[in-house]
């Protein structure tokens, strides 16, 4: 089984947020209203976090795009009382919307604050319903959601490979954010395949992971030059 993971090169990323928008478009993420945004209820499975260090004029800023880390030792999964979030065979942290009771225990135990709750029933103006992705279900109100590593794309890729009677190749499965990133800052692939680009990059001296000290074993690696003060 491949162990899907991501490597994000912060030295390439220009904080353009194409990944953010691509994810919203791909995954039928409802948009907020000014009022709801003011209450910090924007759902965005991918977010770019600005981290500024230093004082004027000696500033240094890193932009950290953050999907779900798909932790190998996921604190969010442990606490779910009904198994609505679980680690699947390929190590993806899955979220079953129809199973979720909306207790938001998992959201509180994600140290990266990367799970989102549907405070209301998601709605789109009628015209905009046209652009919704038929491969991705629409969440009901009161359930938790998060980045799935575009799991539906994996399913489609697998179906396609099966139809073509061949093995699934690493490059068949590309999440939406990875596909659009103008700087190719995001790499995606099998961390267990030592020949894969992600596995190589994850071993690079520039590599680190967010809040590594918590032992969550994130499968999203970052590359950055210089010292890291996370």
């Amino acid at each position: 089984m491949p162990r899907w993971g991501m490597v994000i090169d912060l030295d390439r990323c220009t904080a353009c947020q194409a990944c953010v928008v691509a994810c919203k478009a791909e995954n039928n993420i409802p948009f907020s209203s000014p009022k709801e945004a003011g209450r910090r209820r924007i759902i965005s499975w991918m977010r770019v976090l600005p981290m500024m260090e230093g004082e004027y004029p000696n500033l240094r800023e890193r932009f950290i795009p953050r999907p779900c880390m798909h932790c190998d030792n996921p604190p969010c999964v442990k606490v779910c009382p009904v198994g609505a979030t679980y680690k699947n065979k390929e190590g993806l942290i899955a979220q079953v919307y129809t199973q979720c009771i909306g207790c938001r225990y998992c959201t509180n135990n994600c140290p990266y604050t990367l799970k989102y709750f549907n405070w209301f029933r998601p709605e789109w103006p009628e015209e905009m319903e046209n652009y919704l992705n038929p491969d991705v279900s629409i969440r009901s109100k009161g359930v938790v959601e998060k980045c799935t590593f575009c799991h539906h794309r994996l399913q489609k890729a697998r179906e396609k490979a099966r139809a073509e009677n061949r093995e699934l190749k690493e490059e068949d499965y590309i999440p939406a954010c990875v596909q659009t990133c103008p700087t190719d800052a995001i790499y995606f692939g099998d961390l267990d395949d030592s020949k894969s680009k992600v596995a190589q990059l994850a071993r690079s001296p520039r590599a680190f992971r967010l809040l590594e000290e918590l032992g969550t074993e994130p499968k999203v690696y970052y590359l950055s030059e210089g010292e890291w003060h996370g």
Binding site: K78, V82, I101, N118
Partner: peptide, 29 residues
């Protein structure tokens, strides 16, 4: 108050049918 806090109170019976003992919330239940 716990039920009120649920996003999906209608599904709370799942705690009994699909409860996961790993969750402290289930210990509570």
């Amino acid at each position: 108050n716990i039920i009120t806090d649920l996003g999906q109170p209608g599904r709370m019976f799942k705690v009994f049918t699909d409860g996961k003992l790993s969750s402290p919330l289930l210990w509570d239940v």
